[in-house]
Amino acid sequence: MSTTRTTTATGTSERIRDADEVKALAEVLVTAATRAPSPHNTQPWRFEARGDGIALHLDRTRLLGVADPDGREARLACGAALFNLRLEARARGIAAATELLPDRNVPDLLGVVRLAGTHRPTGEERTLASAIPRRHTNRRPFAEEQPPEPLRHGLRRAAQLESGLLDFLDEPTRFADLARLIRSAEAAQRDDDAFMAELRCWTTGVASVRDGVPARSSGPPPLEEGLVTLRRYGRGRRPPRPYEQVPLLGVVLTNEDDQHAQLVGGHVMQRVLLAATAAGLSTSFVSQPMEVPSVKRELDRLVGSQGHPQTVLRIGYGYPALPTPRRPAREVTTGLPPVAEPG
């Protein structure tokens, strides 16, 4: 069934008339959702095309049992996927609203994006939606130059628009404290055989694999260890390269720290990432302090009354890097209409 289109002052929009049209559009929207980042590119989500919208379920078979045993980072990723889905719909002129944790009897149903009626997309929504396919984690070196204050202000604003905060730990003492925590967590994980085995499981050199972090998307080894130790992915034999000595680090914060807040944290994180991409910046994750409980408690104390940390971002001017692959929408979605046979 075709989708009715209406022309507005902002361009062509799509009007959802019935359940069949929701499902027909779902594949496009889920494709945008799956561009969200996830720990080790595990893609811990399953989507369901419904009559009134698209539901996202946590896929527990893709949780990291060592690095993320309680699913915090997985829920953050799913919150980011829900943000992409809602944003893509709105940018296409479709009214979309997200309900988080809609059914207490189905705890792995993390959210539903309901679609109905038309929406006049803003210029900002279009700009952020256009960044969805371009955003990817850049694990390669960044330039020494840091983003200026106007760009930082824009990223802080992006976090606030999703009811969160982005705290740049750029004051020398706080930066040194965070760098120490990152080095401590990285050392603990390198000494953890179970963690390293899990990391190797999701680090593949095969370009055709649709999840995990392939060697082509990993960064080269550092020429020398800097103040901040970045996670080493990949099995390639790239020559060492110098990394920036003082990266710009920002902590994504939420007011609370329950499962709902972690999903909101995913919204906050993703809006910041897309705003950074739209501004010509590169980003990557410094997840180690979130994954070692003793270090996570120290990070909580470091950010103090600002809020609850959900992830740490590295932001700057990166050299070109290749994105990680994604599973196609039809592989991760139920309820889609069958593909029409040719002829």
Rank of each mutant, 00 (worst) to 15 (best):
G265V: 06
T3F: 00
L322S: 15
Q270M: 11
P338F: 12
G250H: 10
E224N: 05
L199C: 01
R50C: 12
L322W: 13
G304C: 14
T118S: 14
P328V: 00
P214G: 09
F47V: 00
R237Y: 10
Y233H: 15
A96P: 06
A215N: 15
P338E: 13
T203F: 04
L249Q: 08
V113S: 08
T333Q: 00
P214T: 05
D177R: 13
S287T: 15
M196C: 03
P247Y: 05
P323Q: 03
R330C: 08
L336T: 01
Y233P: 09
K296T: 14
D257S: 13
D211H: 12
G53W: 00
V206D: 15
T42H: 12
A207M: 13
R237T: 15
P242C: 01
S130H: 03
E149L: 12
G343L: 11
S305I: 08
Q160W: 02
L25S: 01
A194S: 11
L274S: 01
T31Q: 10
V22Y: 06
G335E: 13
R46P: 05
E225N: 10
S218V: 06
R297L: 07
G316I: 10
G343Q: 05
T7I: 06
V209Y: 03
A179E: 07
T118V: 14
Q288E: 14
N84D: 09
T12E: 06
A188G: 06
T203Y: 04
F285C: 08
C201K: 15
A215K: 09
P293R: 07
T8S: 14
T334S: 14
A185M: 12
I54Q: 02
Q306I: 04
A80H: 02
G307A: 11
R235Y: 04
R180K: 04
Q259M: 09
F83R: 07
L181I: 01
L299S: 03
L110I: 01
I94T: 02
V213T: 15
G266L: 15
E149K: 03
P342A: 05
Y317R: 12
G304H: 14
R271N: 02
A131N: 00
R231V: 10
L281A: 06
P289T: 05
P222M: 06
T334N: 08
D170T: 10
L199E: 04
A74D: 01
E149R: 13
V22K: 03
E125K: 11
R231A: 13
R210V: 14
N41F: 09
P328I: 01
R238M: 10
L87T: 05
P133S: 00
T98R: 00
T7F: 07
R301L: 14
T277M: 13
R104N: 04
P320G: 14
R152K: 08
V303N: 10
P247K: 07
Q43P: 12
D167R: 07
D300T: 09
A129P: 03
R17G: 09
Q306G: 13
R235A: 08
L313F: 08
E291K: 02
A158I: 10
Q288P: 07
R183L: 05
T34W: 10
G65V: 14
G236F: 05
L336K: 03
